[in-house]
Write a protein that binds this DNA or RNA. Structure first.
Lengths: 153, 153, 153, 153
DNA sequence: TTTT
DNA sequence: TTTT
């Protein structure tokens, strides 16, 4: 035993729409590719962008949030942990893939008009009284069982 | 460009002594393998330990700290960012390796008597010979130029 | 002495325009009031919002960023540390005020057209008048000396 | 509503034994005073220690951990959120107190001999085979209901 | 592959 | 005092 902390905090944009798989037993996984870009000036004073791509894995309630509210370009804050998957490929080589298992997600896009869903702009009234998934993103959601109650309304 | 945050926070123990290389131009790199262990009870009530290994990369002042004060078993707090190195191997395959570039390091071992180590690793010698309580290492060091002043005493 | 970590990570919106003071010797301070809102359902299933207000203190380069780019409503990510100011008030009572000393700031608003503001606050003027793609703000800025170079263009 | 992140990460030492209160309905609260010390050299090259004291509040399972395993001097990692309590004092003045509501706790002391309890040194073997509360701290515990199962053994 |  |  050792105790320990394994925590990742990212703010970035999705490079693609989430890939969501519904598994047996009501399990859901979403895979999300997230870019974090660092911007700095090099010695010559030129601005340089440096982008790191992160493979996120979301389960159950968080996966449903991803499925329903995230898409290519969405900006999110996530908290999670680093997790390395290991396996052997067809040639018998040991392979490893590092992923971020997401434990908390906050959407950072403005929601003034349905986040790119073309129609259905919804007033705040509508948000409180009459939410529907297409209109109302989940601002901050933690990992947990796959109840529909994980959806934020 | 996009702005973004790419932050990792780890608390764990070194699996091995740091590997330190002195490069030309006073540059120093240390590679450190850090274990973070998560402990939980499975459904049958048995305690299960789950260890994740992280490849840390430290430069310059932080690398010297690693060289002089860290060894197998040391417990540390680090803050850094995820960074993927990509290259082609001899067979022409694209390879990727995820590392944590360390930006801040705090030593968490008690320092009362040589961090508990009975024997005489050379780093420990230096550690034990020189310091008096008032001079003991400031266990929290940030990334920066490789001055000797990065050493905490 | 003990080593230690004192880190705060916040994502929220400014409740007011920043208050900026230019001090002697080129020092600049900005005070910013930041709301973080937590949203949950109570037992009766009603959505409840819980807002915490944080007093941020930014110095020099970060203060200039605040002065030039932030205003009431801006959404930001900040990293900093907790810091308690203590003093005696006029009645001789000991008073304490907790502030967040900001060390890193990332702007999270979309920047497509002047950050959504229709009118002409002077900071926004500067923001709108000047920029070409190469000059756009680098939304992620760390604490450091008060050079104009801390401004992201 | 707004989404938002309010996160605090601290590593430090208890200034006093925890103060624990058992409330009706099986609720338990622990108040803990935690010091985080920052160490740096001033312009004259003298080492300066700067200590910040944090008022932590732990509930239920975490409070029991505090009650059973923490004491003056213990080193811990905590994760939590900032939370301001407001009230009126006897003179009718508005008063505010900032506290850290702890959501995660990791004990960082070496466990070689009962964390300062003088006897009962326990090998790792003992840890795996035969743990008893006095010997075996809780390495990493998250906030949750007050089951005895929150105790780590 | 994102974002600006 | 923000935000939705």
């Amino acid at each position: 035993m050792a105790g320990g902390v394994n925590k990742v905090i990212l703010v970035g944009n999705l490079g693609q729409d989430p890939e969501v798989r519904h598994l047996e037993g009501d399990k859901v996984v979403a895979n999300v590719s997230l870019a974090t870009t660092e911007s700095y000036k090099d010695r010559s004073g030129n601005r340089v962008d440096n982008t790191e791509w992160h493979d996120l894995e979301l389960w159950d309630g968080l996966a449903k949030i991803a499925e329903n509210y995230l898409k290519k370009g969405s900006k999110i804050y996530v908290e999670g942990k680093i997790k390395t998957d290991s396996w052997q490929d067809e040639q018998g080589n040991n392979r490893r893939k590092v992923r971020i298992r997401v434990q908390n997600l906050t959407m950072l896009d403005a929601r003034t008009d349905g986040q790119g869903s073309p129609s259905n702009s919804s007033s705040n009234q509508a948000y409180n009284n009459n939410p529907s998934p297409q209109q109302m993103p989940a601002p901050n959601v933690a990992e947990g069982p796959a109840d529909d109650d994980d959806l934020p309304f």
